[in-house]
């Protein structure tokens, strides 16, 4: 078992190295940080720009492999380099990742749980009214672009505030500036900021996971072992929960883990719409700013997250399914 997990870990590490390197090389050859300086009025002298870009390790006159080597050497020391605005990438990621985490953790956890429940329920009630309602609404939700959904929720929140006459829910940022974030009032304030963006994430997650869980559950519902469990004398609901749900969760474990990792940078629209300065926003900004080191840094961050997710999902898989424990 330990050997199996170790092998998986090595394998995932290799994946991270390869994907980050590819991302760095792509960014380093396709993005043009020089354009940022050339566009200024008046344009600074070439020698100054070169010196500046050299300092950031983004000079396109230096061969890309040399830059890659230098970047990699920094990486080995735990240094991701500097952003195009000459800030440490480490500090930027260190700050933003907590913002993202605070934003997505509630949405992802609640969304997953509700999604599993909705999917399992829909499967049990297959083709009945409840299932049809769930099916139709998930398809509607999934077909609406996330931005539109976000705007809808934001407007609904504003409408609610107007109707109430005071600000119950906040639509920008994660804390009203000037509040003590750890006082009781501050926590309530945080929560009031979190409700709307979380709802967006939850609704999408429920619609999405619900579909998958429903299919996984349907496979299990028709299975012989569920019939055996009932033939033993378990009630339908007991058999479903004890024998059905656990088996249906096995294929989902992997899926959840990876989705959660990708949500960190995937919640871009929600972040921007509700003014949270998280990882998604960072990624989009660094691409538009031609910020090579930031792009590579974010990619590495996602890679590590996927690695952790993959590892966790292997653990979950092994815990749920005895057939892989060899």
């Amino acid at each position: 078992m330990a050997a199996f997990l170790l092998r998986r870990l090595v394998y995932l590490l290799c994946l991270v190295v390869v994907s980050t390197s590819v991302a760095y090389l792509l960014a380093a050859t396709q993005l043009r940080p020089r354009a940022r300086y050339e566009g200024r009025n008046p344009p600074p002298p070439v020698a100054v720009v070169d010196a500046r870009l050299d300092e950031l390790n983004m000079n396109d006159k230096v061969p890309v492999l040399t830059r890659y080597r230098r970047w990699g050497a920094g990486l080995l020391r735990g240094d991701l380099g500097r952003t195009i605005d000459n800030q440490p990438v480490n500090a930027e990621i260190g700050r933003r990742m907590w913002v993202s985490l605070r934003l997505v953790v509630v949405g992802a956890v609640v969304g997953t749980l509700l999604g599993v429940a909705a999917g399992a329920y829909g499967a049990v009630k297959q083709y009945q009214l409840a299932d049809r309602v769930l099916t139709v609404s998930s398809f509607v939700i999934l077909s609406i672009p996330a931005v539109v959904l976000g705007v809808l929720f934001k407007n609904a929140g504003i409408g609610l505030n107007n109707a109430l006459g005071f600000k119950l829910l906040y639509t920008t940022g994660e804390l009203t500036p000037g509040m003590d974030p750890w006082s009781a009032a501050g926590l309530v304030n945080r929560f009031a900021h979190l409700v709307l963006p979380s709802l967006v994430l939850i609704v999408i997650a429920v619609a999405f996971y619900g579909r998958y869980q429903r299919n996984a559950m349907l496979d299990v519902l028709g299975s012989d072992f569920l019939r055996t469990a009932r033939a033993k004398g378990l009630r339908r609901s007991q058999a479903l929960i004890k024998h059905g749900l656990r088996t249906a969760l096995i294929p989902m474990a992997t899926f959840f883990a990876y989705e959660f990792a990708l949500l960190f940078v995937g919640a871009t629209f929600t972040e921007r719409l509700f003014g949270w300065h998280g990882m998604g926003e960072y990624f989009v900004e660094s691409v538009t700013k031609n910020d090579i080191n930031s792009v590579a840094g974010v990619t590495l961050f996602v890679g590590v997250l996927v690695l952790i997710a993959g590892f966790l999902s292997d653990l979950a898989y092994a815990a749920l399914d005895p057939r892989v424990r060899v």
Binding site: D224, F225, R230, R236, P322
Partner: peptide
């Protein structure tokens, strides 16, 4: 009802199914 029958199933009437691989839950001993 399912409740009433589940008291009968497995205690007074038991079943043995075909294909015992799929008839046993894979995740329990």
């Amino acid at each position: 009802s399912d409740d009433a029958l589940s008291a009968v199933r497995g205690s007074r009437i038991a079943m043995v199914f075909q294909d015992p691989l799929s008839a046993l839950t894979p995740v329990y001993t």
